[in-house]
C-alpha cells in the first residue's frame, strides 16, 4: 500500500512539474536517454549513450510541442575495463550537439566501484573530464557520484519488477581559472522488462550550479532506457 501511494505521489509530482502552473522560477525540461551496453569479453565492455535535453518554456496560445525547445544532444561512448567483481575503470568520449551554435568535444576518465552489503547496491564513481569547444577555453571537471539502487519487490531486481535508483554527484569545474560548482541530485523509479536486458527508468535530475556567485537551478524529468545487448 505504501508503495502504491508513493507511486501515485511520484506520478502526480511529475504531471504537476511538467504541465502545471509555475510556482517558482526554475529551468525545467525533459531529457530522454538511451544507454546501450555491450560486453566484449570477461574484462572489456562498451557503453554508448544518447541523451537529449529539451527545455520547457510555456508560451500562451501555442501547442504543447512548441513549448519545448531543444537545448542539446550528447553522444557518449565508453570503453570499460573490469578490474574485479567490484571495480572498473573507463575511458570515454562525448560529442555534444548544440542546435544554436557549435558542438563540443569531451574526453572522460573514470573509476567506479560497487558494493552490495545487503539488499541495496551502492555505487561510487570518480570522474574527470575535459571539454573542448572551438570558441571557449578548455573546461576541466572533477566529479564524484554516490548512488544507491534497491528493489521494491523482493531482495533482487527481477524481470517485471520495480526498483529505485538515487544518486548525488558533486562537480567542480575550472575554465580559464574560473571555478564553478555543481550538484546533481537524481531520483528515479526503474522497471525491469520481461526481457531482463532491458530496463526503463523515469525520474528527476535536479541540478544546482554556482558560478560567478550566481546560483542557477535546473530540473530535468528523465526518461531512460537501458539496454544490455548481450
Amino acid at each position: 500500500m505504501t508503495k502504491r501511494l508513493f507511486l501515485i505521489i511520484l506520478l502526480l509530482t511529475i504531471v504537476h512539474i511538467i504541465t502545471g502552473n509555475r510556482i517558482y522560477s526554475l529551468n525545467r525540461g525533459l531529457s530522454p536517454e538511451i544507454s546501450l551496453n555491450y560486453k566484449l569479453n570477461e574484462k572489456y565492455s562498451l557503453n554508448g549513450k544518447v541523451e537529449s535535453f529539451h527545455f520547457y518554456q510555456p508560451a500562451d496560445e501555442t501547442g504543447l510541442w512548441e513549448d519545448f525547445s531543444l537545448d542539446g544532444v550528447d553522444f557518449q561512448f565508453f570503453v570499460n575495463r573490469r578490474i574485479n567483481p567490484f571495480q572498473s575503470a573507463a575511458l570515454g568520449y562525448q560529442y555534444s550537439y548544440d542546435p544554436s551554435g557549435v558542438g563540443s568535444n569531451r574526453i572522460i576518465q573514470q573509476y567506479s566501484f560497487v558494493t552490495r552489503p545487503g539488499v541495496v547496491r551502492f555505487g561510487h564513481r570518480l570522474r574527470s573530464d575535459q571539454t573542448f569547444h572551438p570558441e571557449d577555453p578548455p573546461r576541466l571537471r572533477f566529479r564524484y557520484r554516490f548512488s544507491a539502487e534497491f528493489p521494491l519487490q523482493g531482495e533482487v531486481i527481477d524481470p517485471r519488477e520495480f526498483y529505485m535508483v538515487a544518486s548525488d554527484e558533486l562537480i567542480y569545474a575550472i575554465q580559464d581559472s574560473q571555478s564553478s560548482y555543481e550538484n546533481r541530485l537524481v531520483a528515479s523509479l526503474g522497471y525491469m522488462l520481461p526481457n531482463k536486458n532491458h530496463r526503463l527508468q523515469v525520474g528527476f535530475d535536479y541540478r544546482t550550479r554556482l558560478r560567478d556567485s550566481e546560483l542557477s537551478e535546473t530540473l530535468w524529468f528523465k526518461m531512460a532506457w537501458l539496454v544490455r545487448l548481450n
Binding site: S35, N47, N80, S112, R116, G123, E149, V156, I157
Partner: peptide, 10 residues
Amino acid sequence: EQGPTFNLDF
C-alpha cells in the same frame, strides 16, 4: 552472477 552495474557506472 552479479547483474549489470552499468546504470551505477555511467
